[in-house]
Design a protein around this nucleic acid. Sequence first.
DNA 1: TATGAATGAGCCTTCATTCAT
DNA 2: TATGAATGAAGGCTCATTCAT
Lengths: 227, 227, 227, 227
Amino acid sequence: MGIAERKEREREMRRNAIVDAAERVFFANRIDTATMDQIAEEAELSKGTLYLYFGSKTDLLLAIQDRGTTILAGMLAQVFAENRKGLELIRRLGELYFDYARTHPNYFHAELYCRNQEFMEEVAGSEQFRKTRDRRLEIIRYVVKALQIGMVDGSIRPDINPHQVSLQLYAGLNGMVQMHELLTVDRYHKEMAEEKLFDLDLDTLVPNFIEMLLCGLRPLEPLPSKN
Amino acid sequence: MGIAERKEREREMRRNAIVDAAERVFFANRIDTATMDQIAEEAELSKGTLYLYFGSKTDLLLAIQDRGTTILAGMLAQVFAENRKGLELIRRLGELYFDYARTHPNYFHAELYCRNQEFMEEVAGSEQFRKTRDRRLEIIRYVVKALQIGMVDGSIRPDINPHQVSLQLYAGLNGMVQMHELLTVDRYHKEMAEEKLFDLDLDTLVPNFIEMLLCGLRPLEPLPSKN
Amino acid sequence: MGIAERKEREREMRRNAIVDAAERVFFANRIDTATMDQIAEEAELSKGTLYLYFGSKTDLLLAIQDRGTTILAGMLAQVFAENRKGLELIRRLGELYFDYARTHPNYFHAELYCRNQEFMEEVAGSEQFRKTRDRRLEIIRYVVKALQIGMVDGSIRPDINPHQVSLQLYAGLNGMVQMHELLTVDRYHKEMAEEKLFDLDLDTLVPNFIEMLLCGLRPLEPLPSKN
Amino acid sequence: MGIAERKEREREMRRNAIVDAAERVFFANRIDTATMDQIAEEAELSKGTLYLYFGSKTDLLLAIQDRGTTILAGMLAQVFAENRKGLELIRRLGELYFDYARTHPNYFHAELYCRNQEFMEEVAGSEQFRKTRDRRLEIIRYVVKALQIGMVDGSIRPDINPHQVSLQLYAGLNGMVQMHELLTVDRYHKEMAEEKLFDLDLDTLVPNFIEMLLCGLRPLEPLPSKN
DNA sequence: TATGAATGAGCCTTCATTCAT
DNA sequence: TATGAATGAAGGCTCATTCAT
């Protein structure tokens, strides 16, 4: 018994070590220039061994993405521990997503890298992909859950489709955070921000956007209650 | 004189013919699998000639993106011809952006393909890039303009920073439309939509999102006016 | 003693089981695409164990070839049980070789696969190879034997060198049967046969060839006997 | 005009130079161990250039085979210049095939290497292959032609199917020459020959075999000559 | 201006074999 | 005896870009 378990444990550790090495390589430079040779060297393992644990370079990237998503899911899960109104939960989820993007820029960046038709077409069918996709859906389910809570406690309009809106919030916020990343990191957008082509405040850009989104969720008529 | 002009005209035509060919190739399959050989053959030109007109394969892609942006700018410009309130202009701009994505999926897709750190890092410094970037800013300036109009005519809250908000609207809507594209095209998201993992209506997803954004732009207190 | 014997017996059984598995894998697709991993899985054994019984992948193939040759030898041996003239024996041996190729195409094919300089160079020196080679010689000795019988009973020219001729018959027939296999199996030759590039009858091709060979074995002057 | 021709000529020369280099590499060691890197180095050309002229390593091998077949065809063609009876033509064709195998062992060896199901399956469909195959058929057509001549001039039985018999002669002789090559070159068969396991005379082995084949072609009735 | 032959670095993946346990 | 994780060399092929003509 113990022996099988130990083997399993060791295998898992090695798997993790490989992902660690892959992260270092993928994150060191541009993701698309990383090579399996580099990763093998970084992991102090032969290239063949890499393929013992991961079917392809892409699977490795997917595993990294998975780590990121797991971290994010962990952050979001805690929100529900506190007792809050639905709208407030939504705000917190949004803020945490932004926090995540800033505290784990590499993971966030890796996700962006993978989120395009070309990449997905290549990946479709991989086992690793299915796993990653499912974990991804979890994230959105948190939003659905928060919306439903809000619809019940009255902090959110009761006439919305929580599935539809969760996706809108997720997609919209994602676009905003992605833009924020580009403005922060990228030479081109940096210019735009710094050269004052536009008058921007990078610190409030995303939080304000979240507030903007929340406006659309609030119950339409606070007036009747006034009566 | 005439000679120089004719030469210039001819050069421009050939340039266009090359971009035409590049489009056909890039759009025929996955963008990332297109090769300069294919483009040269499609253009019935030698590979060397391609490099006489475009510094790199990337520049070619940028030129295509530029075409798309030009089309979009043309669509948006017309909005201002009509006499509307600022908020209404914003709505129209949003709707047109969505229209654009649906009626020119290839151009839209090309833009998405280019909007990532890896690609931009590679492109930075290219002449073509500067041109494309500027045209891109034009788009956002339309939003700024509409916001300013609205701030004056009272249809939009006066206490916003139009630069900041224009970017929020642009980025947020972009994220939403990108998601819409994935849901429409991609197997993975298609599943999500069709298998009813989520209860979605792809036709109203984006329009409703636009309305949600507008909520945040409306003047805060319609109440006083009621009194 | 009993223990040592049992162990030996068990070892032999396992060895056979491995060859069984190897056959299934080698014969399932193209011989050259089979891998030791596949064989190990098919044998429900670890790869390491395979190497406990066979020194190399090639040895495994050699063992398979050996099986084929053993089958063939068994078929040929029976010919001598019947009481026939030498020339008739030769005819029967030829026919049986053809029968063998048709009834055991996989074994025959494996032999062809191994019968080339490249393969043999790699194999030379292996124990398994020596064994296979010897069994192969057995086959030719049957031909020698039949020739000698015929030289005595007058059905075959007495002025031949039976060693030399046995090899000629073996090699010539082998070339013919190999061609027959290609014409039957291979797309390219199939074309040739079917598209009537050549007017061929695959059923009589080999038998007629055998008769052609027999012509050269018959005593030169049937005339004197006429007197 | 002249310019296009010169280019074409240069291209052909380079193509030839590449095949030259490929020959040197393929023939230096075992055919199956040659690599494109080696060939590129030998040709003092980049690997990429190789692929400009040949679609694959296999095509290169096919081109070499083609050279061999062309040489053989050239040798055989001359036979018909002389005025001979059909049977004599057949004998000459057989002798020349053997000559070819001895004077161009590398080409002959290359052909043997390619003549197996595995290789052909891989090659099927290649342009180069079609060319090679056609040239190969030419060879057999010479045999058909000689047979037909013999059937007319009475030196060959008139009741044969020349297509069928040509293939039998070709295949049979090929098997014999292949065996001769193995006996000459290969360690294993060499042993057999030298250790007197068999009493063989390598010099007469093939010629005698040809005579044996001819026996089957002669008109059935030498009887009339008795009159 | 136009050509297209040449480049050559680079890349992912495969697999027979070994060896510590 | 049996395992299976690890090896690592090998290998065919691609393609953006250059440059002599």
